[in-house]
Structures are given as C-alpha cells and as structure tokens.
Nucleic acid binder design. Structure first.
Lengths: 116, 116
DNA sequence: CACAAACATTGACAACCGTCGATGTTTGTC
DNA sequence: GACAAACATCGACGGTTGTCAATGTTTGTG
C-alpha cells in the first residue's frame, strides 16, 4: 500500500513555489516530478495537443487512436494518466468517452518553471 | 547506434510552438518529451533549485551531495542529464566542477506549456 | 435477450531509469 | 613522484514504463 497513490489528482500549484525561488523540499520535488512525468512522454504531449486543437475542444478515444498510430488500449492508458495528473477531464456520453483539457492546468505548471 | 543521441544539447524553442496552438508532429513531441523528461525527476528538480538558490548562482558537486542525500556518482549522473538537456552549464576549475543555471532555459520550457 | 460498438482493464514482456559500489581520471600538494 | 581530493565513468541490480493482445464492461440497437 504505497502512500504515494493516495492523491491521484494532484494540484501542483497548491504545493510549490517557482523552482528558482528557493530550495525545494523533497516532498515538493516529489509532487512536482509526478506532474512533470505525466507530461514527459511524446504520446501524451500529442494527445493534449490533439484534444486542444479538436473541434469543440473535446475528443473521444476513437478520434485519437488513428492520428497517434497507437493501439486503443495504449491510448486509453495515456489518457488515464493525463486525467489523474489533472490535465484532462473525462465525461462519458453513451458509449463514448470525451476528453477535455482542464483550463489553466498547463499554465499552472508553466508558472512553476518561470523565474520571478 | 541509436539516432536519438546525436543531438544531446537540444533547444526546445527551436522546434516547437506552444502545445495548445495546434497538433504537434511526432518529431516535435519527441524533442519536447526528451526535455521534459530531464525535469521530471525529484532529484533533478532539487538540484536545479539548489543551484539557483546558491550563492553566486553556482555550486559544485560537493555542495549538492549532502543536502540531496544521494551518493556522489548519482548526483554527477543527474547533473550530466541536466547539462545535456540545456538547463545547466559545467565549468571546471581546479578539481572542482561548478554548475550554473542556463538563464532562460526554464522559461523556454514554460513558454511551450503556456496557452496563447 | 442477443449482438455490436466504444472503451477500460488485465497480464505479459522488453526497454528504460535511478541508484550504488568500485574504479578511473585529473588536479593540486608535499 | 607519491599521495589525496573532487569528480566522472562503469557495471550491476531492482523498479518503473510503454506497448500490445486478450478479455471485461457498459451502452445502444435490433
């Protein structure tokens, strides 16, 4: 029972100040690294980009599988990671699952990297 | 001989537009993911933070080993990754190696995550 | 109720990553 | 030239990660 999994939906801004401001604690670094890890994958970056560029700002899995060139389970896997990291929301309608960018979530991470 | 290692010092800004602007290509995502991967580790985040907060904005390995609680080879390993990703510079004086933040490197990454 | 479609979950496997101890390399000192 | 100090590199090991095929689950349709 790893204690790290008790907070899947982490809000980075609630934890950290900009990285260059002063030395981070081990815990702050842990939370921030988890969030960055969710972004540090080419498939997931393209997923965010595809969802953001899609009409109505939302997309279902079937819209994303083919342009990514990955299998459906793999796409679902990456989407789950992005949802748990707080970058996407999932809303299910009928048999489709629609994913949406969480407004400001990327900007929040950007804010932690920006100096001053 | 993996072709991916031919460009160790990557400049993300030369490759990509902000993530939400329009769909990224596979190559753009690959480069950006490599850069983010360098940041997505608690030890490396703390290293950047420690270097930035240090007097004279530079620090040697001996300054960093103890506050991190990691062995010297491990710290050297992480520093190398940060240098190759373009976040730190290394200048050797006598037997010491001094590391410095590359000005604007973090802001460049932040710019790619910021919308509009 | 049977069936199909859209998606999630599981299990397995190869590749990668973080860590350390041991060793190599360079530089200053006696 | 012998020695020590600071750091890099190497080799090995366990843990994590990305991927897929197979299977499970839910929802709409005939």
């Amino acid at each position: 029972m790893p204690v790290a999994e008790l907070l899947p939906l982490t809000d980075v801004t609630a934890c950290c100040t900009p990285i260059t401001l002063d030395a981070m604690t081990a815990e702050q670094a842990e939370v921030m690294a988890r969030t960055l890890k969710a972004l540090a994958d080419p498939a997931r970056l393209r997923l965010l980009s595809l969802v953001a560029a899609h009409d109505d700002d939302e997309a279902c899995v079937c819209d994303l599988t083919e342009p990514l060139g990955l299998s459906q389970p793999t796409v679902s896997h990456h989407l789950k990671i992005l949802v748990e990291a707080g970058f996407l929301t999932r809303s299910k309608r009928a048999t489709w699952a629609y994913y949406r960018i969480v407004p400001g979530s990327l900007d929040a991470v950007a804010g932690l990297l920006t100096s001053v």
